[in-house]
Write a protein that binds this DNA or RNA. Sequence first.
DNA 1: ATAGGGTTAG
Length: 574
Amino acid sequence: MHISNLSTLLNKFLTIKQLNQIHSLILINALNHLEPILVRQIIVSSGSFHQTHITKYVKLILNHMQHRDVSPLGYAIRFLCQHSQFQDAVVLYVQLQSSGVFPNTYSVSSSLKAYGKINYKVGGISVHAQVHKFGFDGVVYVQTALLDFYSKMGDIRTAHKVFDEMSGKNVVSWNCVLSGYVKYGDLDTARHVFDEMPERDIVSWNVMVSGYGRAGEMDRAYALFKEMSERSSSSWNVMIRGYIDCRKMELARGFFDAMPQRNSISCISMISGYSKCGDVESAEEIFDKEQEKDQLLYNAMIACYAQNGRPKKALQLFDEMLQPTLNIRPDKMTLASAVSACSQLGDLEFGSRIESYMSDVGIRMDDYLSTALIDMHAKSGSIDKAFELFHGLQKKDIVAYSAMILGCGINGRGNDAVKLFEEMMDSNVAPNLATITGILSAYNHAGLVEEGYRCFNSMQKYGLFPSVDHYAIMVDLLGKAGRLEEACELIKKMPVQPHSGVWGALLLACNLHNNLELGEIAAAKCFELEPDSTGYRSLLANIYAYSGRWDEAKRLREDIQESGINKVPGCSWT
DNA sequence: ATAGGGTTAG
């Protein structure tokens, strides 16, 4: 086929914005005869395709190229960076090197960005060495990319060294250094740089305001913000973000409402802020008002539902997002939240739908997503599957350990839970409240009172204070072992108000061991805290019946009949 | 082509 025909064909493909199997085959066959310049053009133009197809497409082209020319490769690397496929970008850069192709400035600066994003310092340093070798020292884009890389790695010394050696410093290079000090947390030096800069643009101001915001110094942030001669959406967004971080939602909302041009980022910040405060309704309000909903906005709202005990709504919205007309695809983050929702619902079926979806569209697993799946499988009883995923993790962090330990606990694998806990301590991962909940649940399941006590009492050693839920598990553990008075004493000593789960656990134990005296006390508290729940009444009725107090038992059961359907008491620690 | 603002797991 002739080149000009190919170009026509290509343009046609590009205008229909979709490629099926046959299109791809024709194209790939044709590509073997293409000039590198044309391949480059394809890669650049493929930006008009749907995002999930792009990387696949770029990879297809590259795999079928005969000419390993730097120009298309450099473009491809930059292209992958622009679409947040940093891992792929790095892989491509390594391929480029090993095939003996001379890198260009595009590939070098893009690969530096990619190494920065995936947090791989050694990779960036090796690029630095090559920069020297290939004589790109004087190229301002490469120098800036290097400077920014070291800044992002927190290596402010090397960053400064690169900065000092730069031939033509401009605002961007100054901004990179400034942002380096801000990231490093050295606000005084950052302010010094800010004051000494020969020229400041809006980015410099935004970086400085954001620095104060991140440090919680909102007064200073606001002072600078007021001083700005012009403001961009980011200027307002960093103020919003600062107020959200110190949980001042009203102030954040004030800035949100006052800003002249809200964008998707402003909305996402507000939604996640409301989400952290448990204010789902306000988050919904923001979400519903926004006309142009993008992927990240959906992600934020789905996460909000999943994090605030609305798993059904989370999955509803996830389904809505999948509507082909919307032209948005879920990504790892969406899936992590959706999996978390499935886990809360115990819905393995939806969960495995997600797993097959991942392999269909080629979403690679990461530790976040794995951890969500671990939790889901562990809670649904597939503890072996959970272990398999757990062993495949790149880095086992506190969340992964906690999910695994809790999973073992509720599946009756107390020994494994303890083993995991010890392994975790050995690898210097400090436990938090959720981990303790997991390990206590394991002891509870196995009926190991002394071990439970020891763990409960050791919490202070890690700077942790038992929450109501921890007390509830301890009460359950003591109660089931028949140590009812001890359980009662523990409740009395609680520094926080016990919720119905705590008294409910005691009531359950009183039912188990037929203790009327304490049962009445516990039941009274339960009725007070959850007047609508009939489950507690039937537990007390049982105790009365066992003790031969038939009248009281009968009276309670009639109460229950009247109030209608039997409700199960809430067990908040499960 | 280089800089600033956003979303994820127990």
